[in-house]
């Protein structure tokens, strides 16, 4: 397989490179693309538990 034969596949190879790069990045930060666990983020202003009711660690 010569390199010039791959020219016709440049879009597929480019797409593959981008997807593989994204795959590597995702695995490095522990990002599961299809995750059945739905997670919501909240930021507590008091550096404690963000819910309104009582809690003191």
């Amino acid at each position: 397989m010569r390199w010039d034969e791959l020219k016709g596949l440049k879009y597929y190879l480019g797409f593959s490179a981008v997807v593989i790069g994204f795959y590597i990045y995702s695995n490095m930060i522990g990002w599961r693309w299809l995750n059945a666990t739905k997670t919501t983020h909240e930021k507590s202003a008091t550096r404690g538990h963000a819910r309104g009711y009582f809690y003191h660690k």
Binding site: K43, S44, T46, R47, H49
Partner: peptide
Amino acid sequence: FALINETTGTEYNFSK
């Protein structure tokens, strides 16, 4: 469940 970062206060809420 609430996974809570004690430094930043960020909560990750989920249910099971």
